[in-house]
C-alpha cells in the first residue's frame, strides 16, 4: 500500500509538451517584438554605427540626437521643422474628431435601442454595410461635399470625415452596449417624466463609462493612425503626423538618415502604443465589441 497513488499525480516540472508550447510562444513573441526592438535600437545609434554594425546590435554609444532631430528639424521636402508640427496637427485633428464622433455615435446607439422609429434599423444596416465599402469609392464625392461646405483643406474637413467613417463601428458598439442594459431602467425614467436628452444624460451616460473608455481608445488610436483622410482633406499646413512621417522617411532628397527615420517612427507610434500598453484590456474589449456585428 505504500506506493499507492495518492493526492495529485506526480508531474515533472516541465513535460515535453509544455516545453514545446512555451518554446513556440517565445519564438513567436520574439518575432512579433523584433520590429519594435529594431526601431528603438536604430533610433539610438549614430549613422556611422549603423553603417558599420548590424540592425540587431544594441547601440554601443547611445545617442538621443536622432530623436531631437526627428522632433525638431527633420526635413519634409522643403520644410525642415521636424515632426513637432505633425504632432500638434494630429492632436488638433484627434481631440475634436474623437469628441464629435463619439458624441454622435453614442446618441445614434441610444436612439436605435430606445427610440426606435420606422426605418431606424434600415439606416443602421446601411451604416454597417457602409463600413465595408472601400474609402476610395466615396473619396471624391466627399471632396466635392467638403468643398461645397467650404471646409475642404481644413481641420474641419478631417473631423467631418472621421466622424462619418467612425460612425458605423462606434454606433454598433454603443447600440450593443445600450441594448444589454435592462429596459426597465429606461422605462422607469420615462415614467418619471424624463425626455430624450434627460434619459441620455442622467441615466445612460453615467452607466456607460466603460464603453465610452473603449470608444475613446478605439478612436484615438484609429484617428491618430490615419493617413488617407489626413493627406486628402487636411491640406498641407494641417498634415497629421503619419503623413509627415511618410514624407520624412520617403523624401528622395539628401542622404538617408535611418536613425532619424526610426526616431520619427517611434515618435509617431508613441501615442497609440502608450494607450495600448496602458489600457490593454479595454483595447482588446474594443476589438471584440466591434467584431460582433448585428
Amino acid at each position: 500500500m505504500k506506493n499507492e497513488p495518492k493526492g495529485p499525480r506526480p508531474r515533472k516540472a516541465f513535460s515535453p509538451g509544455r516545453i514545446m508550447l512555451y518554446s513556440i510562444l517565445v519564438v513567436a513573441a520574439i518575432y512579433y517584438a523584433l520590429p519594435l526592438y529594431i526601431m528603438i535600437v536604430t533610433s539610438l545609434k549614430g549613422m556611422p554605427e549603423i553603417r558599420m554594425g548590424n540592425i540587431f546590435a544594441p547601440p554601443v554609444e547611445v545617442t538621443f540626437a536622432p530623436w531631437v532631430k526627428a522632433w525638431d528639424s527633420a526635413c519634409t521636402g522643403l520644410y525642415c521643422e521636424g515632426l513637432k508640427v505633425g504632432f500638434w496637427n494630429s492632436v488638433k485633428i484627434t481631440v475634436p474628431s474623437v469628441i464629435v464622433s463619439i458624441a454622435v455615435a453614442s446618441v445614434n446607439g441610444y436612439a436605435l435601442v430606445n427610440w426606435k422609429f420606422k426605418g431606424s434599423e434600415f439606416f443602421f444596416a446601411v451604416l454597417i454595410f457602409g463600413s465595408f465599402i472601400p474609402y476610395q469609392v466615396m473619396l471624391y464625392p466627399l471632396v466635392i461635399i467638403t468643398r461645397e461646405l467650404g471646409i475642404f483643406g481644413s481641420l474641419w474637413a478631417v473631423i467631418f470625415v472621421h466622424t462619418i467613417f467612425g460612425m458605423p463601428l462606434l454606433t454598433l458598439i454603443f447600440r450593443n452596449y445600450f441594448a444589454a442594459l435592462p429596459e426597465e431602467l429606461f422605462k422607469a425614467a420615462r415614467v418619471d417624466g424624463a425626455g430624450f436628452w434627460g434619459i441620455y444624460w442622467k441615466v445612460l451616460v453615467p452607466m456607460a463609462t466603460p464603453i465610452f473608455v473603449v470608444a475613446v481608445i478605439l478612436q484615438v488610436t484609429g484617428i491618430w493612425n490615419d493617413f488617407l483622410f489626413g493627406i486628402v482633406f487636411a491640406g498641407q499646413p494641417n498634415f497629421p503626423m503619419t503623413v509627415q512621417l511618410n514624407n520624412i522617411v520617403n523624401t528622395t532628397q539628401g542622404i538617408k538618415e535611418y536613425n532619424v527615420n526610426m526616431a520619427a517612427t517611434m515618435l509617431t507610434a508613441m501615442v497609440p502604443l502608450v494607450i495600448y500598453f496602458v489600457s490593454g484590456r479595454f483595447f482588446v474589449r474594443g476589438i471584440a465589441a466591434g467584431a460582433v456585428k448585428g
Binding site: 513573441a29 512579433y32 520590429p35 529594431i38 540592425i55 503619419t242 522617411v249 497609440p272 490593454g280 476589438i287
Partner: peptide
C-alpha cells in the same frame, strides 16, 4: 500584449519599419 501591439500602430509605421528591415 506582444502579439497584438502591431495592430495598435499605424500602417505607415509598420511600412517604414519593415522597409528598414
Amino acid at each position: 500584449t506582444i502579439f497584438l501591439y502591431p495592430y495598435a500602430m499605424s500602417f505607415i509605421v509598420t511600412g517604414v519599419v519593415w522597409q528598414w528591415m
